[in-house]
Design a protein around this nucleic acid. Structure first.
Lengths: 128, 128
DNA sequence: GACAAGCTACGAATCGGTTCGTATCTTGAG
DNA sequence: CTCAAGATACGAACCGATTCGTAGCTTGTC
């Protein structure tokens, strides 16, 4: 029986994003990267990554003294999981309502909208 | 100095959604409504709503013995806050990427897409 | 081989969110 | 008035996530 797909916490997600971006990395790599944004202790990151390994969010190669970690979950499905979660928690299950809010957000530029337009056209053809 | 806008937790959001839907409600109203989905104790909901009142997420009318609570934050801005939060935590700030994932989600029907299409057209006219 | 630097392991403290038991108050029915 | 039902208040426990100090293990350099 495989465990339910895991919902990464805030800290876990931050680490996953580094791993997705950099590929296999050491704790130091991740810590250095995260330190650009937040002040955070080295052993804090280490501990978190150890826990993530236990949970199956990352795998690690411990053959060398300095372990090398790798994301064990893919970016797209994880994002989809989080989006789905929010859709249910805050939008009563309506993906449309979430998209509406996202487009209202100041984060959505004209180019974004054109990109989305294109994706919509594609989706329509694929799913007529 | 007004406090930062509050990010409601899971439980808080569930309660807010009831208040948004029902309008001013008693603890019992909310508890009854929530009990459709989850088994949850009455005093648990009570306590949570008391804390939310302290935080300013809800207001309450305590003039009668049975207090009446009301959402103190609006639905749309709160949703926008949560969407923005997710955009930054999981999508590196790209609203577009979030929308893409949302549209891929099984939750987005053809009608949703058409609705979104319409919204996009509107948005384009408004923001040329 | 001894040391310094860098690494992992791990226990403990903390924190916010959540849950619930219990005490106390209010009110309507009899 | 008395009692039972139902409400609020509040402390305490619990839980998962996070943080960090400290101990102990490698390894490269001299």
């Amino acid at each position: 029986m495989s465990p339910d797909p895991l919902r990464p916490s805030d800290g876990e997600l931050a680490i996953l994003r580094v791993l997705w971006g950099r590929g296999p990395s050491t704790v130091r790599d991740v810590h250095t990267e995260l330190s650009r944004d937040r002040e955070t202790g080295y052993t804090t990151v280490l501990k978190l990554m150890q826990i993530m390994a236990e949970k199956g969010l990352v795998t690690r190669d411990a053959s060398a003294m300095t372990h090398v970690y790798q994301a064990a979950v893919e970016e797209a499905p994880t994002q989809a999981l989080l989006v789905d979660d929010l859709i249910h928690r805050a939008f009563g299950g309506s993906a449309r309502d979430l998209v509406v809010r996202a487009l209202e957000s100041r984060g959505a530029s004209r180019e974004d909208m054109e990109e989305i337009q294109r994706l919509l056209d594609q989706a329509r053809k694929a799913r007529p």
